[in-house]
Design a protein around this nucleic acid. Sequence first.
DNA 1: TGAAAATATATAAGATGTTTATATAATGTA
DNA 2: TACATTATATAAACATCTTATATATTTTCA
Lengths: 114, 114
Amino acid sequence: MIQTDLIKGSLRTIVLKLLKENGRMYGYEITRRVEELTAGKIKLTYGALYPVLHKLESEGVLVTEQENYNNRIRVYYSLTEKGHSMVSEKIRELMEFIESLQGIVNPQTNPNYA
Amino acid sequence: MIQTDLIKGSLRTIVLKLLKENGRMYGYEITRRVEELTAGKIKLTYGALYPVLHKLESEGVLVTEQENYNNRIRVYYSLTEKGHSMVSEKIRELMEFIESLQGIVNPQTNPNYA
DNA sequence: TGAAAATATATAAGATGTTTATATAATGTA
DNA sequence: TACATTATATAAACATCTTATATATTTTCA
């Protein structure tokens, strides 16, 4: 696990993207999924994740449902209509950002390289 | 110009990478170069850039030289030995981060996708 | 059976980093 | 002459992240 500070700024979009794909997820599941998708390179911290989830909920982007599973409470998060309508745009922005970063880090593959 | 908040965390590495490639640069030049390399998509703000430059200088990663050009002072930044020895590692981390992000945003191209 | 690891959510304090606004000033361009 | 560009810089406000901490159940391994 290397990059932690790099995540800044993309965490929201990552959460939205995963929820779009999976319908609904709980916090712990999100951290597992991110580890899975990044071969263990990105490990989300709960101190970062939960505030983001709560913020997105307060903004009306997510809703929660609590369920009982094995005597434990699970809080499932899913996109609202508002969430659905913003997630595509957010993903597009993130992809553009990734491309831009590549243009800087790997300029030989970049047509804008002067 | 779309992503501003996404830059968070990668700004330091971007600056280091550009200085490695160009030998020495001044602040304004760095913002221009980033715009150039990203087709205008990333525009660094000076409020973010200068604090980063000053911090890197105080950490011994960069040194400055002031020069006069057209009656204006230009502050050139360049890597120290310490800066040179850390920049490759930082770039590697950023590239790994980019790959990880792609694994999340574009999972069909990701071998870790379960 | 007992201990450790994994599962599961959450908050607070402190640190860090960014945006926005502001100040200053010279040169180039229309 | 006025506006855009070039050029550096700081401060206040805001947003975000890390680290530490608390709690509790289930699963796994020895």
